[in-house]
Design a protein around this nucleic acid. Structure first.
Lengths: 338, 338
DNA sequence: GATGAAAATGTAACCGGTTACATACCATAC
DNA sequence: GTATGGTATGTAACCGGTTACATTTTCATC
């Protein structure tokens, strides 16, 4: 039942265990004849080294922990996909830990990374509480923040500048001539993905003198159905908005569904702007104008960064990427009668 | 740098390492006074047991390998989400391995599971080649197939009966009165997710006497853009179909996008049936009529099954779930002038 | 053929837990 | 006071690799 060990291979090849170890690690010179004998013994026994034992002595597992709220959310699915791509190319494995945005489960997941001596932790779930900070300190391994950041600058991260992104979306609508613009975004308690987008929208709309009343600034949860509900409320008003800024593509798709159900044509009578540029955004009809984040790239770079930190490089400062406006079919100038 | 070990805790509590081990494993009785001393020492040192060391001696890692072609594909994202849910409730962790449907990478991933002594392997990627079978045999751990199956019945699995599902979709269109029905499905080399669906469609259409010519039976890849391209071709014909059966929801969404781009109203002039019932299917407009698989449940049950196998239960036979037709807004009777 | 440095290989300690087995302790029974 | 048995704890081997250090072999040089 328990497979062959390095000692079985050594015995069969007529060498010591150290020599077998040298052959598989490849770092030290081994004479060709010996190497050949060992390789043959390995093949005959079908032996493969036990990574658990190796990890114990080396103190490295070759595993990175990835803490994600929910991979069924396309944003995190695309992020995870980018990470998996990079991990494969670097010869590293990812341990996926779901937390459903619960702080308690986040902290438990971080401790788990420590228990398993994972080489690094990549955290994507959102804002950091003191409990997160404390848990990160205790893991004693590199921590990388993907698509989020640490206001105290203690943990390096990579993400898009949401403030600029928010302003881009707002300016696009203003330049098309919209003035009756509503907003549907995430909870502003989220200082990474919601707060700065709200801020960017408000700055631009206020500068243009068309900041709407609070009941046109709907702070909802991140789920698509909340976008749907918010849009239904906005679009049933007698003087409805001509455009809606959304805090994420998922919310925007909810808004588009609501418009379709109410028979309001997009973009003729309503323009919609998303945020993220999910793969879905191009696939939808009407295709979604959105502020693009390079999601896959963020995932890849997060893993590369973690890899470099594990190798001993110093932690760089938070890396800010620029968002880009992608204009598609969901935005147009407001209807003339508007 | 290297944190405290069990020996540090033992020394501080004035007991032996065996006693500390007993306290954390909880299986054997320890006097309350001793337990208290040990727990205090643990807390003071901030010690947590090293799972790598534990795994080495116990021969169990508490990790399950999950082999997936691509989590950015919503089907696999929802599957992974179900697995993560079950894993969390069972106290097990998932190692995510991407393979992009490459047999070579599949096999490498399986070997990796063996190297790391993962407790079980959950495979989701598709059909099994002899190379897969051989690699599975070598891991020496339970293997579970999620949303796929082994024709030889050697590895247990859980999946939906695609033949019945295919027939359901076809019957739905026939009962609405459609007779000019085209099909867009996956490569029939895929004996799990494509072959049986084609078979089910053809059986029903042949029985109704309206099996279309081969150029209305389009075998394409699984990606959404292939669905789009196939639909463009079908819908540009002078005598175009009144309905299209799709091998997956992702393909169906491509078809819907193509219809929208060609100005063909769905469901008035074209009915579309998907397969999978992704979360997206309800969100889309028009909402998608589809053959439903309980994707999240399949993921959860796969993990539960793996857990039971690890605990020593015998492998059950492949478990077949029944698909269900979910009628939404993308299907209707054919236009009368049809 | 002796010498010494470099190359190849072996020996054994070690990584940090678990657990079989041995021992110490205490209470009850005779 | 000794035998009996159950509970609590300690000792040390072990899981399967790695690697520091020691030893042997090889080979160029004088």
């Amino acid at each position: 039942m328990p497979g062959p060990t390095i000692r079985d291979v050594a015995a069969r090849a007529g060498v010591s265990v150290a020599t077998v170890s040298r052959v598989i690690s490849g770092s030290v010179r081994v004479s060709p004849a010996t190497r050949q004998k060992v390789e043959q013994a390995m093949a005959e026994l079908g032996w493969r080294p036990n990574m658990t034992a190796r990890s114990l002595v080396r103190g490295r597992t070759g595993l990175f922990g990835v803490i994600v709220p929910d991979v069924a959310n396309p944003f995190f699915a695309e992020l995870a996909q980018g990470m998996a791509l990079a991990a494969a190319s670097l010869g590293v494995r990812l341990v996926l830990l779901h937390t459903d945005l619960s702080e308690e489960r986040d902290v438990a997941a971080i401790h788990l990374c420590r228990d398993h001596r994972l080489d690094a932790v990549i955290y994507t779930s959102g804002a950091l509480s003191p409990a997160h900070q404390e848990a990160f300190r205790q893991v004693g391994r590199p921590v990388v923040l993907a698509a989020t950041f640490d206001p105290e600058g203690q943990w390096p991260g990579i993400l898009v500048d949401s403030l600029t992104g928010g302003r881009m979306g707002a300016r696009h609508l203003l330049s098309l001539g919209h003035r009756r613009i509503a907003m549907v975004g995430g909870p502003s308690t989220d200082p990474v993905a919601a707060g700065p987008r709200w801020e960017g929208w408000r700055q631009e709309l206020a500068a243009a003198g068309c900041l709407p009343p609070p009941n046109w600034q709907l702070e909802v949860g991140w789920k698509q159905q909340y976008g749907y509900q918010a849009a239904i409320r906005l679009l049933r008003e007698p003087e409805r908005p001509t455009a809606i800024l959304c805090g994420s593509d998922v919310l925007a798709l909810g808004v588009l569904a609501a418009a379709a159900d109410l028979g309001i044509p997009v973009p003729q009578e309503l323009s919609v702007v998303g945020f993220d540029n999910l793969n879905l955004a191009a696939l939808w009809r009407p295709s979604l104008t959105t502020v693009s984040q390079p999601i896959g790239l963020i995932g890849q770079e997060a893993v590369h960064l973690a890899f470099r930190l594990v190798a001993g490089e110093p932690a760089p400062p938070t890396r800010w990427l620029s968002p880009e406006l992608v204009v598609r079919g969901s935005t147009a100038p407001p209807a003339p009668h508007g």
